[in-house]
Design a protein around this nucleic acid. Structure first.
Lengths: 120, 120
DNA sequence: CCGCATCCAACAAGATACTG
DNA sequence: CAGTATCTTGTTGGATGCGG
C-alpha cells in the first residue's frame, strides 16, 4: 500500500508537471493547417502559391498567418533566393517533431481501428 | 515490385500516410480543455462540479460538451453509483495516449528551453 | 507572383440564469 | 448536484481586392 500509494502519487506529480508542456506543444501544432503545412514542406521546399495549391482549400490570408506562426516558432524558415524567389523551408527544428508526429499517427491509426471494430 | 525505392521517396510516402492519422489524433485531443480534463481525471475519478472546480475557468456548458466528446471517443466513462452519485472516470483506453502525451511534453519542454535560450 | 487589408460569416466559448 | 438554455462575445476562416 505504501509503495503503491507512492507510485500513484509520483505518477500524479509527473502528470501535473507534464500537463503545461504538453499543452504548449499542442498549442503550437494544433489547428487545421499546421500539420498539413509541415507535411507539405516535408516533401520539399515550396513557394507561397505552390503551398497554397498543395494544401487545396486554404486561403492566402490563412496560409500567410499560419506561416508566420510557424516561422515564429522556428519550424519554418523563409528564404529569399538571389533571383528574388521566395521559398518556405521546413528547417531542422521541425524534425524534432518527428517523435510527436509518429506517436500521433500511431495513436490515430489505433483509434481508427477501434472505431472500425465498433469498440467504441 | 517498385524495388529499391529511394529513402526520400519512402519518407515522403510515409509522411503522406501519417498525415491523416496524425490529424485525426490531433482533432480528438487538441483544444483548450481535452488534455486538462484527462489529466484531472488521471488524478482520480471526479464528479461534474469537482471537475469544474479543478479546471478553474471552464464553464458548465463547455465542460459538458467536452465530456461528451471524450465519452464518444471512449476516453472517459460516466458512472452512476448506487447512491446516485455521478462520476467521470478516465478509462484504460486513455492510457494508450501515454506515448503521445509524453512525446508532446518532451517536445514542449525542448521548445520552452529553446525560447528561454533565445534560440528562436 | 507574393502577401497584406478589409469585410463578413460561422462557430467556439464565456456569463448567467434556470430546471430536475 | 448535474447539467441545459440563452444570450453575447471573441476568434477563425473564407472571399475579395489591392499594392509591391
Amino acid at each position: 500500500m505504501e509503495t503503491a500509494t507512492l507510485t500513484e502519487v509520483r505518477d500524479g506529480v509527473k502528470c501535473i508537471e507534464m500537463m503545461p508542456a504538453a499543452e504548449d506543444a499542442l498549442y503550437i501544432i494544433a489547428g487545421k493547417w499546421k500539420v498539413r503545412i509541415l507535411m507539405a514542406l516535408g516533401m520539399g521546399d515550396k513557394r507561397f502559391n505552390e503551398l497554397q495549391r498543395a494544401l487545396s482549400g486554404i486561403s492566402a490570408r490563412v496560409l500567410s498567418n499560419e506561416l508566420k506562426d510557424l516561422e515564429l516558432n522556428g519550424l519554418v524558415t523563409k528564404q529569399t533566393l538571389a533571383n528574388g524567389t521566395i521559398l518556405y523551408v521546413r528547417n531542422d527544428y521541425a524534425d524534432s517533431l518527428r517523435g510527436v508526429m509518429s506517436e500521433l499517427a500511431k495513436w490515430g491509426l489505433l483509434h481508427k481501428q477501434k472505431i472500425r471494430n465498433r469498440e467504441i
